[in-house]
Structure formats: structure tokens, C-alpha cells
Simulated scan of single mutants.
Amino acid sequence: MAQNQQPIFQTKPQEHLVQIPLNIERDSTTLINQIGNSNRKPNHWPTIILSIIFVITGQTIAKLLENFYYDKINRSEYNESRQNDGVWTQSLLQTVGFPLLLLPFIILTKKHNQQQQPPITSDNYHYKSLAIIYICIGIIMSVQGRLAAMGKLDIPFGIFTLIYTTQLFFTPIFAAFINKIKFNRWVVISLILAIVTGALTLSSSFGGEPDEAEVNYASGSWAALFAGICFSLLLCNIQNVFDNYVFKRTESTVKKPSFASVFEVLIFSSLVATIISVVGLLIAGEQDDLKREMNGFSKGKGSYVMAMVGQAVSWQVYWVGIVGLVFSVSSVLSNVISVITWPIVSVLVVLFFNFMDDEIDVFKGIALITAVLSAAAYFFRASRTPFEILL
């Protein structure tokens, strides 16, 4: 009987631990999520490279034609009351070419819809919210274009460039708060080099630069500063559209967002900006200035029309590249690429024009070097871990 008695203290059998996977949600703005979820950030090198080419080509041609325009309208004959003639026209030229984007938008949208499964309901599109956002972006686009055009006519171009470069300070600040972007050391280095690049273009010249009697440092400086702020807000709000609306359309599907979204943002926002610029142009009476400029253009009416149309087309190429970089990577890289293009423009202006005996000096040379280093710093780690550093 004693042999059958159970011991008072029985050894507890060994427990087998079972690992239960937990579905831990991560902030959509973290680097891990942006890399792991390829549906959120459609990073593809061909798209990124093509967008960079569009930025460089579009901005370079547009700036060269702008210099050609100011050089041939005999602006030196303008009096103080006509100093800011054409600022609404320059703002209009940046957006009025948006109908050119309709055909690629229709083609890409049709192709994407044929591949999209399952169909997305209209509730997911947030049409009303997007309409309000596009109106706000359009307003910012028109204001930014107008302020930038006015600043260049009020202060020396070197001072305008230095002030306008402050957009590289505001863009990461807005991106951190609006887009919740987190930075690593290579992105910070890239931003610093881009700021140096922009600042070193202070020796560049501009066809519409005011003479000593026309300089208005107060209005020109404020215009340049707020133009830079508007450009930073513009890029960050566009990224907000992609992150919170466009990418969410395809979260429940296996399909990635279409590049047609870039054209969608540009078409609707540019429509609003164009309407505002046209109204401003008519109120300011610049339609009469256009006729006078065309008749007095030293190269003839045909060259005047080609210069204006060329600017409108080139700005659309530029905007497709800028917004394409926001779509594929981030507002920060988009701004960096935009600024490091400035030295290329300044060198080409020297080669094509002869403003105030401008020449290729040491500042332009160093600016080209820092521009290359800025781009290299941003993409440095991407060569080892694809897109790890892309925001």
C-alpha cells in the first residue's frame, strides 16, 4: 500500500513553448514598411532615372528659353512702373501646358484599369477630399510661380538664388511633420551638399535681372523666400496625396499604383493653377503687354511664339519628372534633384548668352562637383541594398 502511494510533491512536466506569430502593425512611414511593402512605394530604377532626366531636361530648356525671352524683349527700356510686367505670364507658362498630359494619362489609366482586380469601389477614391487637395495644390503652384517670377525681377539673381535655396531647409522640415519621413546620415549629407550647390550658383546671371535703379530688396527678398516655402509645401502635399490616397487604392490588391497617378495630380492641380494665373493676368492687364512684346520682339513674332510655347512644354516635362520622383521616392529627393540642376543651367546660360560678361568661374565648377556628390550621397547605399535609403 505504501508502494502505491503517490509522492506528495510531483515534478512538473516540462512545458513546450509554442511561438504564436503576432501581427504587429508598423507605421506606414517607417523604413522597414516602405521597403517590405512594395505596394506602398513602387521604387523602380527605370522610373527614377527617367524622372531625373525629365527634371534636368525640362528645367534646363525652360530656363534657357526664359533667359532668351527676357533678353529679346528689350526689358532695359521698361520704366519702374513696368518692372514687374509679365509675372503672371511666367506663372501661367509653368502650368498652361497641362493638356499635353491628357493623352498619356488616358493611356496609362486604361491600361491600369484593365489589369486591376478586384475593381475598387468609388468610396475608396475619396473624390471630395482629393478635389479639395488638388485645389489647394493648384493655388500653391500659381502663387509659387508668381512669387518666383517677381523675385527675379526685383533683386539681383545671385541674391534671389541664395534666398530661394532655403527651400532645402523647409522641405525636410515639412516632410518630417506632414509625411512623417525619417532621415539617415546619407540623406542629411545629400541635403547639405545640395544646399551648397544652390548657394554656389550665386554667380549665375539672368536675362531679366534688374539694374540698380530697379532693385527692390524688400519685396524681392520676401518674394524669393515665400516662393521657396511654397515649393516645399507643394512637394510635401503632393507626397501626402500619394501616401494617403493613391497608394491606398491598391492596398487591397496585388497591383501596384500606376504612374498615371502622376499625370492625374498634375492635370487637376495645373487646371486650377492655370485658371488662377489667367485671372491674375487679365486683372493685371498683361494681355496687352503680350501683344506689345510680340510686336517688339527683336527676333520676330515667330521666335516669340516658339519661345513661349517651348517654355510651356518644357515646364510640363519638368513637372512630370518632379512629381514622378515624389511618386517613386519622396519629396526630399525631388527637391534635391531640382536644385542640383541649377549649375547645369548656369553653365549653359554662359555658353548661349552673354549677360554682363558672365563666365564659367570657380563657383560654377565647384557647384557642378557638389551637385554630383549630392546625388551620389543620396543613392550611395542603394548600390548595396536597393532602395534602403530612399525615403
Rank of each mutant, 00 (worst) to 15 (best):
T95I: 09
V96H: 03
F98C: 06
F98M: 09
P99H: 02
L100E: 01
L101A: 01
F105L: 08
I106W: 15
I106A: 15
I106H: 06
I107Q: 12
L108P: 04
L108D: 08
K110I: 12
K111H: 10
Q114F: 06
Q114W: 03
Q117N: 15
P118V: 00
P118R: 01
T121W: 11
S122F: 06
S129E: 13
L130P: 04
A131V: 10
I133D: 10
Y134A: 08
I137M: 02
I137L: 15
G138K: 03
L147T: 06
M150V: 13
G151S: 15
I155Q: 13
F157E: 03
G158H: 13
I159R: 11
F160G: 07
L162H: 08
Y164F: 14
T166C: 14
Q167M: 12
T171N: 03
T171A: 05
A175G: 00
A176I: 02
F177W: 06
K182I: 01
N184H: 06
W186M: 10
S190K: 03
L191K: 08
I192P: 12
A194C: 07
T197Q: 04
L202K: 14
S203F: 05
S205R: 15
F206L: 04
G207L: 06
G208Q: 04
D211Q: 12
E212N: 11
E212Y: 06
A213Y: 14
V215T: 10
N216T: 02
S219P: 10
